[in-house]
Design a protein around this nucleic acid. Structure first.
Lengths: 120, 120
DNA sequence: CACATAATTTACAACCTTTTTACAAGTTGG
DNA sequence: CCAACTTGTAAAAAGGTTGTAAATTATGTG
């Protein structure tokens, strides 16, 4: 996301200054925490945000606090993002989460190494 | 809304200098407070106006004053705006209110994942 | 593979905010 | 002074937000 606080791609539009988010032209109603979470993630597009950083910045929680609150909020956010939820918000196992720009799904390409090709 | 103090769309027309508001060509009779509220909101189209700002600017109330006056006036205003009341004046939970331009409702698009499409 | 750890998911309860209704006091104009 | 209108408040009802618990599923490691 740029420093203007705007993000836009084929499906998703985020306007941080105006606190507006749309998916496929459809306005999304986010709660404050959901919005803060998406804001923080998308403002750092492509960067991995560790759990403890998110919990600190958004909740003010220190490391000692054991909670699943972040996970649940991630879930709610993904759900509201609909079809694309999982594609925009990636889980980095054991570390945190990352927002990534939408990428058109590509057909998978098979590769058969000539080295191991069966001989007729 | 522009700096001219005019707002107009498919259904609603607001003329601040002349203090005239119409919905679907029908003149609306607003009380002073209702008008001030709509004026302030519409003059800041798209912007979230926090409760405390509205209460300060329109009522001169400081933060300490606990009152539901704003909510009740919002209600009366929405009611006079008729069918579109809720669409023009959005509630930002825990924050305030926002005036937004009318948006034609869009038809929802169904999506059938090819992965789960029934095979004929 | 078995185990430990992490994340996902669902459901729920507590808490807080807004909405709605009704009423009473205040105001205005004839 | 009366009638109609405006305004603010109280209180109940409705609704939204948030964190947690707990069961389930996924992931990584030896």
């Amino acid at each position: 996301m740029s420093t203007t606080g705007l993000y836009q791609d084929e499906h998703l539009e985020i306007n941080l200054p105006q606190a507006m988010v749309s998916v496929d032209e459809q306005r999304l109603i986010l709660t404050r925490k959901e919005f803060e979470l998406l804001a923080m993630l998308s403002a750092n597009e492509g960067e991995i945000l560790p759990r403890n950083v998110l919990l600190d910045r958004i909740w003010g929680y220190s490391e000692e606090i054991r909670t699943r609150t972040l996970d649940v909020h991630i879930r709610r956010l993904r759900k509201k993002l609909g079809l694309y939820g999982d594609s925009y918000i990636q889980t980095i196992f054991g570390v945190g989460y990352r927002f990534q720009r939408f990428r058109e799904p590509r057909a998978l390409i098979s590769y058969q190494s000539p080295l191991f090709a069966a001989t007729a």
